[in-house]
Amino acid sequence: MSLLFLLNSVAMNMSFILVVLSTLCREEKRLRKWRKMIGVGGADWKHYVRRKPNVVKRRIRKGIPDCLRGLVWQLISGSRDLLLMHQGVYEQLVLYETSSSELDIIRDISRTFPSHVFFQQRHGPGQRSLYNVLKAYSVYDRAVGYVQGMGFLAGLLLLYMSEEDAFWLLVALLKGAVHAPMEGLYLVGLPLVQQYLYQLSRLVKEQLPKLGAHFDEEMINPSMYASQWFITVFSYSFPFPLALRIWDVFLFEGVKIVFKVGLALLKYCHDDLVNLPFEKLVHALRNFPEDALRPDTLLPMAFSIKVSKRLEELRVEYEEMNKSAQESGTSLKPTNRTRGLPKLC
């Protein structure tokens, strides 16, 4: 009896060890594939992407290995090239220029990822780097300057790369090195936020009509829950493991992943959301349940949602709507634009 028990527990332990070993092996194999794809210091990357774009896309959707994430992010965002073209510029911006946003930045430093160990220490290395990157950006692009929300982008980047690398990645994103520029999220009037919110509200109505109608009934406006999805690309309040996986795809495929993830979240929670009254609804839209935020559940769902074509059509529609509103002189201000939304949807 006891021998049987012993054998049994040995077998169980063995199978546990085998599972761990096979996971390790799989991880090792995955890393080897990634290393081969990147080459030494990123030397083979461009060549590989040109030759096998779909393989790269598929591998990125499965998640970039954490130890390579910083490097790969710089390669896919185009920031590495910017850095090489502008050697010494970052140092100049940090050391010799002054910015009118300095006080605003300082005020928000301790309010950016306040519970993350890297940013927790007052005047510690995390907070100092964050300040430098944001200050440098506010000088580099004075039209944008510093806007709340940018700190979360910079903060996330700083967990994976140096200050200078993070700065150039921020530049690549806002100025549009590879994808459409993001600076409209932060310019006066937040024009791109307004556009994205319009597109999202339309997509919700088209893809989740029952929920869209319920939002209308309860007078839920997408700015009540989704503006921070766009402004911080899900880095503000979503768990890091999910945010990182979204960023992997975001940097390679562009902003459409933000719409897809947003729609997937609404779809996943659809049956609960359609029954909630206004207050509970707003709360639920800002506090999704833990199981909805698991990357391996949410992301496959997001990937299955098609938005590219419709997003482009809605962008054109939005621009035309804005243009005609401006011509009639009614919608110069973004506030009026928002006001006009429900009628036009």
């Binding site: 928000d108 990822f113 306040p114 519970s115 709340q148 700015s223 503006s227 709360h283 800002r286």
Partner: peptide
């Protein structure tokens, strides 16, 4: 709490 994040957009409680 000393650890509130800067509010982005708006927040809501009842």
């Amino acid at each position: 709490s000393n650890q509130y994040k800067a509010t982005i957009g708006a927040d809501f409680l009842t």
